[in-house]
Every structure is written in C-alpha cells, then in structure tokens.
C-alpha cells in the first residue's frame, strides 16, 4: 500500500494513506462535476501540523478503520458554496436560502463520502468506514473533537475563480 510519509510529531512517523487521500480527491471532483456541473481542479497540497478553521461553512466526516481513525473536512467560502449549491439546484446563488445552503453542502459532501466509501470498499475491503457528514457554519468556525498531534493534509481545490479546502488527518492506533 502506497503511503505518504510525514514526520509531524517528532515522536515517530505518522502516515496518511495516499489511497484514502486520492480516493476522496477523486470523489470530490466527480461529485462536483456530475451533480453540480462544475469542473474542479486540485491546485495545491500542503502538509501541516494541525487543522485550521477556514471558510464560512464546513462539513466534517469521521473516518474509522482497522488501523486508526481520522477526519475529513471540506470547507467552503459562502460564494464557493453558493456556486456549487446553485448549480446543484439550478438556481442563482442569491436565490438560495441559508437552510438550502447547509442542506446542499451536506448532500454534496454526503455524496463525496458515499463515493469514497464505495471505492475504498472495492479496493481494500472494509479498511475504512466513513460517518455521515455534519455541518458547521459561521466565519472562523472551529471543529471540536478532532484528532490531536496528527499531521493534516490541506488539499486546495479551485473552480471558476473560487477555491475550497479539503483537510485530511489520520491517526494510527
């Protein structure tokens, strides 16, 4: 199994499975393309030491597996979320209610999670389990209960002049 190696804590080598990251990345692109008619490209991958609160609305998915546990967070600015949910609904971003914005982002991320879960299960049996997504809204929002002392990967996606962030972390048992 291919692994991304990062010595993030100084107490040994922490690893984020590249297959997990690649699968989620592909799922993000597929869901945005198929359901929201939006071509998304990966602009940058940045390894960091902790989660950073970014954007106005985030959706969090828990990961559990035989080897450890982790978290995926997709964070959007309001204009980015409005673009995607607007495309999903066939509406202009300014017509979307706050309720539909949260629901739409939750549904898109639910599809990302489901698509990734299916691919991971086909590729590696039941190595990972992904939870249903939860939504957190508000500028500078924090995510509670996240894994500590773990490396995070920031994946910066770009679409039509806007960007959004996928943060991935995984702590091995």
């Amino acid at each position: 199994m291919m692994m991304m190696m990062m010595n993030a804590t100084g107490q040994g080598t922490n690893m984020i499975d590249a297959k997990l990251v690649n699968t989620v990345m592909q799922a993000v692109m597929e869901v945005c393309g198929t359901m929201a008619g939006t071509q998304v490209t990966l602009k940058e991958v940045i390894p960091t030491l902790d989660y950073k609160p970014i954007g106005d609305i985030s959706s969090v998915i828990g990961i559990s597996g035989e080897q450890g546990e982790g978290m995926l967070t997709l964070s959007f600015t309001e204009p980015m979320a409005g673009l995607l949910v607007g495309r999903l609904l066939g509406m202009a971003p300014e017509e979307i209610t706050s309720e539909d914005m949260c629901d739409g982002i939750g549904e898109l991320v639910n599809m990302v999670s489901g698509r990734a879960k299916t691919s991971l299960s086909e590729d590696s049996g039941s190595l990972y389990r992904l939870s249903l997504p939860s939504i957190i809204k508000g500028p500078g929002h924090e995510i509670g209960g996240r894994p500590k002392n773990c490396p995070f990967l920031f994946l910066v996606f770009e679409a039509e002049g806007h960007s959004f962030i996928l943060q991935v972390t995984f702590r091995h048992f």
Binding site: V31, M111, G114, R115, K117, T118
Partner: peptide
C-alpha cells in the same frame, strides 16, 4: 449514496426494483 455492492444486494432482497447511486 450507499453504493457498495452488499447494499445493492440487500435492497433488491428487501424488495427494491432498482438502484441509483448518487452522484448521477
């Protein structure tokens, strides 16, 4: 969004006629 093969089989056995996975 439940696209795993075991779920498709479970749904058909339960009486569903067809299965469409999101995204579609």
């Amino acid at each position: 969004t439940e696209g795993e093969k075991t779920n498709v089989v479970t749904a058909i056995q339960a009486g569903a006629n067809n299965y469409l996975v999101k995204p579609f």
